[in-house]
Structure formats: C-alpha cells, structure tokens
C-alpha cells in the first residue's frame, strides 16, 4: 500500500515550525460549567447553567436560567470556603430541619457554606453585599435570568473556586408571580442580619450547583499541525486503521481523487 503523494518529497517540514513559547496560563486557569438546580425540593421551578472562567485573579461568570419569579431580583452568591477544605454540597429536602416544606437559607448554609462572593450586577462583590437585592440580577417577565460579570478575585481564590457552590435565591411559593409575606412569612435570614420586612420567598434558595463539567479554556483555533508529511509511502496508516473515512474538505476530496487515479 504505497499511498503517499510524490509532492511530499519536495515539501518542507511546514506542519510544525513554531517553537514553544510562554503560554501565560496560570496553573488554576480553567473554564468550568455548573448546572444549578432546585436540589432542595423547594418547588422553585428554577434552573440555570453557569459558565465560570478563571484567568489568574480574574473570574468571568456567565449565568443563564429560567423558571424564576418574574420581574424580581434574585440574590446569588458563591458559597463555600476559601480556606477550609470542607466538602460542601447542595442540600436535599432533608435539610428542611423545621419541616415547613422549604429549605431556608439558614438550613442550607451548613451544607453549601457561607457566602464567599456576592454575584452582584455592579459594585461590591464581597459577602457584605449578600443581601444587596438592588444590585442583584432581575428575572424578566417570563422568569428568565441572565448575568454576565468579570470579577477580580481575592488573592489565591482562583484555585479554590472550582470547589465552591453557586446558590441563587428567591422563589414564588404561592404562585402569584411575586415575593410576598403571605406565602412563607418574613425572611428569618434577613431579620437575623437586621433587615426586617423581607419575604422569606425572596431569600429561600431556588437553585444550587457546583462544577460538574470543564472545557479547554483558551481554545486553540482550528486543527493541530502534527505531521510534516515527510514519510514517503507510510503516512496513511491512519486511514487504513480507520477504514472508510469522510473526506469532507474539498481539498481532501481532490487529493484523494488524485491519489486513486495514480494508484489505478
């Protein structure tokens, strides 16, 4: 099976001429995917997907979700710890220790940990902004929520980020498309922080999730130039191994036809 074109003889080693240089990548850089769901069984009807891109101390967060209380702000945070190696998780309905049918923020905290970053739309992102509902993303009239922000992380936090959980808060327990005190009463969590009159609906967790997938962060463009085409007569073992193959590229089809012509 001699399959190589004669052209290879004259060709320079052009499939691989670039010297390796510094890539500038940090060890903990990465692009992670988080699926945020109502693990609590809080009947929020909400779910989101978060893409988290870590580049050094820069954190790019993109969240899209649906099924949220419409026209209402949804507080959202990274929960967990930047110092402890505790295994945080998302609560199940078993975390509803007072048995009122809802896992509240306080009931969930031991599972997913304290607020580390407040995912506000502008300004401060520290835990202090945890209840800054005036700077939290607002779901549209259809209950869709989207969020994009780049945040500068505290030193060393990039390495810990993939162990954290995102929790989105705010749900509509009595189905009237808004947060109201009639549904679940007053937020005990907000009250414990000195804020009165906030409905429990506004602070109860609607979704929770952690990193469940990852991709190549800085994707290379196109294919990989791994072969300089200089092994006369032997380089098509790959084709033989694969058997029938798709030559989708026009150039590929052209070259293949030429090869067949020469062989026959």
């Amino acid at each position: 099976m001699r399959t190589t074109t004669k052209l290879a003889l004259a060709a320079p080693a052009a499939c691989a001429m670039i010297f390796a240089g510094a890539s500038g990548a940090h060890a903990d850089d990465g692009t992670y995917t988080m699926k945020l769901t109502d693990t609590m069984g809080n009947n929020s009807g909400s779910h989101s997907t978060a893409t988290v891109h870590v580049m050094g101390d820069q954190l790019k967060v993109h969240i899209t979700g649906s099924g949220f209380t419409p026209n209402s702000p949804h507080a959202q945070h990274f929960h967990g710890s930047f110092s402890e190696n505790k295994n945080f998780t998302c609560p199940t309905s078993a975390a509803d220790t007072n048995g009122d049918g809802q896992v509240s923020t306080e009931e969930g905290l031991p599972m997913y940990g304290d607020i580390m970053i407040s995912l506000t739309t502008k300004g401060d992102t520290s835990p202090k902004s945890g209840l800054a509902v005036d700077r939290m993303p607002v779901a549209d009239a259809q209950g869709n929520l989207s969020y994009d922000r780049t945040i500068t992380l505290p030193a060393g936090a990039g390495a810990k980020l993939k162990n954290l959980h995102i929790v989105q808060h705010g749900l509509d327990a009595n189905g009237n498309d808004k947060y109201d005190l009639d549904a679940l009463g007053e937020s005990t969590f907000a009250k414990s922080l000195g804020v009165s009159g906030i409905p429990q609906e506004a602070t109860n967790p609607a979704t929770c999730g952690t990193v469940s997938g990852a991709s190549v962060g800085a994707e290379p463009t196109g294919g990989v130039d791994t072969g300089d085409g200089t092994t006369q007569g032997v380089e098509d073992v790959g084709i033989l191994g694969l058997g029938a193959l798709t030559l989708a590229g026009a150039g590929g089809a052209w070259a293949y036809r030429r090869r067949l012509g020469r062989q026959s």
């Binding site: 997938g213 085409g229 098509d236 790959g238 590229g249």
Partner: peptide, 30 residues
Amino acid sequence: VYGTVDRAELRLITCGGVYDGDSGHHLDNI
C-alpha cells in the same frame, strides 16, 4: 474536542489523511 465534558477525559491528536504538498500540511487531524 475542546468543549465541556462532565468527567476526566483525554484527547490524543495527530495529523492524518492525505498530505497536501501545496500547503505543506496533512489535510486531516486524527
């Protein structure tokens, strides 16, 4: 090849297919 997966995966990549003498490249990746 590069997109999101929910487990630890590996990709081994090399050139393959027909060598295009005009461009000096293989046309495919394996």
